[in-house]
Design a protein around this nucleic acid. Structure first.
Lengths: 333, 333
DNA sequence: CTGTTAGCGCGTTCAC
DNA sequence: GTGAACGCGCTAACAG
């Protein structure tokens, strides 16, 4: 059995209340008693029982993190940052995966809430099931909004817009887009921004023909590869000379598809990704991509969850285009 | 305030003991009372407070997971599996990162232990600081042993051996090896197995010249790239025609280095990785690698932590060589 | 079969 | 400045 506060009190010849006070760094304890208590704490290796404390105070120092898939490098990066900042503040993080499944998400959030976390950081996949589930727990969502909770996100529309703008500026006109699942707002917004820039271009350049080819899938590597293959299996005259994706994972899958088909990047095909995961700068060629400021996202989310001030409704961050080696001017026919 | 068991009792006109009994699915409750209690539980939306229960029972349903770096795809995969299996059994998982820092590891384990987890799954980076820290908590370590605790791991020596064997069989004689940190057993074992196969070859083929070039670094992408560059910056006559690595991440970094230097894989250079992370089959070319059976590892680890039977001391799993596209016969000069 | 009660370990009044 | 006592929500042992 671990020693309790009672053991310390007994051994130090004081009452439990006094021990509790030195634990709480309460100033109203005489110096010699405090020293004696601290000594016996050290001596018997006493560690306060967090359960007792939490029960008494009716709050824990745990924060819940719910992500669709920890295997996704973007979320892994997020988890790392959350864990770092949280543990620096004395909090631990409880991890839950939803596998993009609304039913699982509901389940996970419910059990997490049952553990009375101090706060919740949530990357929601659905809002139908979760809506109204959370109350009384400081919650901030990332990437997509949930009514009644604070949101931290990059401006996905602007991200899509930047990608399209970059490709157009390089001279591309036959442009493809690999989207994420239509059911997610994130994906819809990125695509929307992308297409809007194309629309604008058409308006200002009525003579030019620009017809984007859009395909939809998941955010993962495999989806990028499959959809890429689909997009690239066309006659030279209609095949896109550039493709933007909704995630770096898709872009890397696409890279593979292009390689399999003998297409050189960026000579034959330009690619721009989204997220700027660590791997983006290591693939061959290095990926031009839209960076999400993940450290900033995490900082704001954790501040929102742990901070004492009221939560803003929305923190919108600006994505930025990172130019590397996967984009060039289109090939001359 | 959330409703407590007392509220339920009062509202249902029974005692708290009875409510507790229906919660525990105790059979000694008459059917009509059970129904009434369940109805009022439903009615007021009562959820048992886990803190009270845990304090009373002196055990939680939390399992701690300590990994060096959640950003490493192998550990992310591990975390995913652990979380899946754990939540299926009603447990939640507390995540901690050590960043390969022994001091941080000690800290993390201590605070984790303070939360009285039902079990601990640990991928240790050091044993000096951690040794003896854990007692009274069911613990299994993964990858590297910690005295007094169960270990689940692949046979790293055999993995290294397989890699060397494959390269030799293809005809390679100038072979490089990118190792992980010398301070980790995992890395040492892989390298050891690798070099042993080379030694064996020398003994049975005294005429042939085989001198491995070994370099050491971290397990990540960047290290693979840097060390790869170092290894490949040599005259054609001495430059390795094949390089094995201690992780897929290193192998992918190496792929990038080779590409930067105009070396084609596998024509000019063969590469074999270690782990078989999801990305391994998606890079260009697909990576030949040594697979760790991660689902099996996780299953054993969780069984060890949650199971009631005594822990075996060691579960050693067999790695297997996955042949893909990154290896070929050496170029003819 | 059900009600009552004693703690689990802790923080916090309220006396002194 | 310090000690005694209560209660946070729950389970288990004991009565009835």
């Amino acid at each position: 059995m671990n020693p309790t506060i009672k053991d310390v009190a007994q051994r130090a010849g004081v009452s439990v209340g006094t021990v509790s006070r030195v634990l709480a760094k309460n100033k109203t304890v005489s110096e010699d008693i405090r020293a004696k208590v601290e000594a016996t704490i050290e001596a018997i290796g006493y560690r306060p029982n967090i359960l007792g404390r939490s029960l008494r105070l009716n709050k824990t120092d745990i924060i819940g993190l719910v992500v669709p898939d920890i295997t996704n490098p973007f979320f892994a990066e997020l988890a790392k940052h959350v864990e770092m900042l949280a543990s620096a503040e004395g909090y631990s993080v409880l991890l839950a995966n939803t596998h993009d499944d609304p039913e699982a998400e509901k389940q996970q959030i419910e059990t997490l809430l049952g553990r009375l976390p101090a706060g919740l950081i949530l990357v929601p996949v659905s809002n139908s099931l979760v809506d109204g589930l959370i109350s009384g727990t400081r919650t901030v969502t990332i990437d997509r909004p949930l009514s009644g909770h604070a949101l931290v996100a990059v401006d996905n529309r602007e991200g899509g817009y930047l990608a399209a703008d970059h490709l157009l500026a390089l001279g591309h006109r036959r442009i493809g887009y690999i989207s994420g699942p239509n059911s997610t707002d994130v994906s819809a917004e990125r695509r929307e921004g992308f297409l809007r820039r194309l629309d604008e271009f058409r308006e200002t350049n009525p003579g030019e023909y620009v017809a984007p080819q859009v395909v939809e899938g998941h955010f993962d590597y495999r989806s990028g590869e499959e959809l890429g293959k689909k997009l690239l299996t066309q006659a030279d005259a209609t095949r896109p000379t550039a493709i933007a994706t909704a995630s770096d994972q898709q872009a890397i899958g696409l890279l593979r598809a292009a390689g399999d088909m003998g297409l050189r990047v960026p000579t034959d095909l330009s690619i721009v990704g989204f997220d700027d995961i660590p791997l983006a700068s290591l693939v061959l060629p290095r990926l031009t991509t839209i960076r999400q400021p993940i450290a900033e996202i995490t900082r704001l989310a954790l501040e929102g969850v742990l901070g004492s001030h009221a939560l803003q409704e929305e923190y919108k961050l600006r994505p930025v285009l990172i130019e590397r080696g996967s984009c060039a001017a289109p090939p001359v026919p």
